[in-house]
Design a protein around this nucleic acid. Structure first.
Lengths: 214, 214
DNA sequence: TAGATAGCTATTGTATGCAATACTGCCCGC
DNA sequence: GCGGGCAGTATTGCATACAATAGCTATCTA
């Protein structure tokens, strides 16, 4: 038998398709077609779809299967502060000594960001945030964060591509690391929230680009 | 076809079985037996199990199916503050005018609690908290809370039964409602967190009763 | 011509079937 | 007596089959 269930791989693949809009916002998911395309049967595919629906990346319409939720500026306005506050909470629950050990590693990733361009930026940003939270001892909080971020990334995918604000974001990352070095959790949290809010602000500029074609 | 998918009912029924320990902590879930017992086939049952595993109420052991996670005092110590902080966040994001409209309805539920006894207390407590959060405009945060509470309830089930602290909890509920009436969000939040933390403290007293039989 | 309706197809929701792994008990060797 | 290995069974994971609804098209009616 498979030592890693098919549905795990499928969740990743389908998530990728939602994020890069091969599965368009507002579109229904045809189980037979998608199963053919992914080379699996409907059973594990449905299991994956259910998992994604539980996380909110898909919605289940009884009798009509699953569909990709339409883009909704309001939803983005709710998701960004939510992730920001969850990350702050994770920081608050990380022991000071663990936090003190993070800044060097964080800055190393930031250095990479300064050299990288375009598509890599988003990946490195993910790595940076994952590292920031990596010492939080509350696995349930981390699970909630991991479940929520893909929803946000759907909106964020255009952020790094369209706006040349990488420098700004990088500077904020360094400020957060510096604050952690000083043991100033409040300052780190403030900049962290600002970082997320700013991402939302940039997003708002071209929110119409994200609407469902209808 | 079913207008409400079977898996929804199954999730409720299985959740109930986990909470009242008909599905014991640490035990494996036998899909064939459980499907027979619930009168459905394995397919929707598995869908329900996967949904529950996504929420953390079950864990998936590749090749070995699903099992009920063992009780872990450490986990309880993480879950209670998490739910407390999430509820505070929900309160923070509820508009002041909406909040001002809540206390009367909240106290009505509290009145019921004062009259009720035993098993009903937990249900009423749930109703009270649901009402408290009902005006929060962030559906994703509410979803996270709803997903997390069952995990906590597994630990909490002994709380209301074993300790005669109902009066204390009721008093705190009234203090929260009063603070909301005064528009004092900080005070309401503080008591709310204290309420959750106290629940955890009581829990700790007989945590050994919650261990898995092994 | 616009709207309703009936029949047909597409698609989902559930059940069953099949293959591979994990568990159990027993036997054997040490 | 005890641990390792082997055969048989139990159980999972995936695939397929079936039944019922949702949606679409075309025709009919007003």
């Amino acid at each position: 038998m498979a030592r890693t269930p098919l549905r795990s791989d499928l969740i990743e693949q389908i998530t990728a398709r939602v994020l890069d809009r091969r599965l368009a916002a507002g579109a229904r998911v045809n189980e037979v077609h998608l199963a053919r395309e992914l080379g699996v049967s409907r059973t594990p595919l449905r299991e994956a779809l259910i998992g994604l629906a539980d996380r909110g990346l898909l919605v289940s319409a009884p009798g009509r299967g699953f569909l990709v939720p339409p883009f909704d500026p309001e939803e983005a306005r709710r998701l960004y502060p939510l992730v920001a506050e969850l990350e702050v909470l994770a920081l608050r629950w990380t022991s000071p000594v663990e936090l003190a050990g993070l800044p060097d590693a964080l800055d190393a990733v930031t250095d990479e960001m300064a050299l990288a361009d375009g598509g890599d930026l988003s990946t490195l940003d993910d790595r940076w945030h994952a590292l920031l939270l990596s010492r939080c001892p509350n696995p349930h909080l981390l699970r909630l964060i991991e479940q929520t971020k893909p929803l946000l990334k759907r909106y964020e995918s255009a952020y790094f591509a369209r706006h040349d604000h990488a420098g700004e974001s990088i500077a904020e990352h360094r400020r957060i690391a510096a604050a952690l070095r000083d043991g100033d959790l409040a300052a780190a949290s403030a900049v962290l929230v600002a970082n997320w809010v700013k991402a939302l602000a940039y997003l708002g500029k071209d929110e119409n680009d994200h609407r469902a074609p209808e």
